[in-house]
Design a protein around this nucleic acid. Structure first.
Lengths: 195, 195
DNA sequence: ATTATCCTGACGAACGTTCGGAAGGGGTGG
DNA sequence: CCACCCCTTCCGAACGTTCGTCAGGATAAT
């Protein structure tokens, strides 16, 4: 299918050069067609970007829910740590990660509203999943009782963001280093008071 | 001075629309001149970008060293927490923050080498400052002894990155929320074993 | 015959850049 | 004081290139 090959190439191009820097001519040549032929499958550059973006966001959200609905029975530690590692391996091999981050943090000016909405949906989806988990962990005595569930969840998303930022900036090697260090400190930090 | 007004406008433009998305014509019109006049002060778009970028990076590095050389006498907790807050207020009002992050994470393709080099210089500069601080804090019993200084430093940079990422994405309100939560957990996490 | 797909050709607009010259100020020599 | 030249700053006009996009036709499959 030509349309999906266009989407694949566009994803790489948008990720690497951004919306303004990506050229339909180059995308087309990667697919082996002329740029005008893109208009057979998409109404224009905007629609192409939007389709690729929404597809990518949905993939992220789906991964989110899949993970936490399947592994709810695990203990909290491996549940949370496993999610970090899951994102790690996912973002290591997935071309969409860079595109996702770039589009959310630095969207094309005339699409800021749309990307912002989708981004918030992802963030809130994650928080809505995390807070109950923290709450439950507090009740079972794994997490420090004086710590608010919301704070524990926010700090966790901070760890998550820090990891993919490092992954994006410095690559898997240093990303893994940060993953280990940040998780170690985080888990010590939220753990119930030792005696 | 016209040249510096061009730099100011270019900074905002590059931050908001990226290298490819920024237009010399628009930058010039903001200054009140025609785009050709830019070439009186800069040899081209590349040099303009590079000057603004280097200026911005140097400002960041200078802030880094200024802070830690002036406040070395403080206790470790307020030293480290103060630096986070310093970055916070700095990045809240500084137009250069967005430009700095954007240029380092998503640089124009033909300048990847230069921006990467500068970025690494900043990161290593920070680490070289942090590790000795952690080492000293460990010796004085403030930090958990079984924790490596390097891990404590890496986790700290993770907190820092997470804060400015949230600041950039969601604004000061949520940025501050994350700052508080992440610091709370971090400081609990690296603290010496309570009894 | 209809439909899907890709093409050639061309469009106007914007891009960064170059050239030549117009204005203006400052300093120097007559 | 004036005339000269230099030097800085800016602009009009134009360059070649690339951009996204549109119209119309060719080809092949259904």
């Amino acid at each position: 299918m030509t349309a999906s090959r266009i989407r694949e190439s566009a994803l790489r191009m948008f990720a690497e050069h951004g919306y303004e820097g990506a050229s339909l001519a180059i995308i087309a040549s990667e697919v082996g067609i002329k740029k005008q032929s893109i208009y057979t499958h998409f109404s224009g550059k905007d629609e192409l970007f939007q389709e690729v973006f929404l597809e990518t966001v949905n993939k992220q959200i789906r991964f989110l829910h899949d993970y936490f609905s399947n592994k709810q029975k695990q203990d909290v530690e491996s549940l949370l740590y496993g999610f970090l590692k899951g994102f790690f391996v996912r973002y290591e091999e997935d071309e969409g990660a860079k595109f996702f981050l770039r589009s959310i943090f630095f969207p094309p000016a005339h699409m800021k509203d749309m990307t912002g909405e989708q981004g918030n949906q992802f963030v809130h989806g994650l928080e809505d999943i995390l807070v109950p988990i923290m709450e439950e962990a507090k009740n079972s005595g794994v997490l420090e009782g004086s710590l608010s569930s919301r704070a524990a969840a926010i700090a966790y998303t901070a760890v998550l963001d820090a990891i993919w930022v490092e992954l994006l900036y410095a690559g898997p090697e240093r990303g893994m280093e940060r993953l280990k260090a940040a998780w170690l400190v985080y888990w010590r930090g939220v753990g119930a008071n030792r005696k």
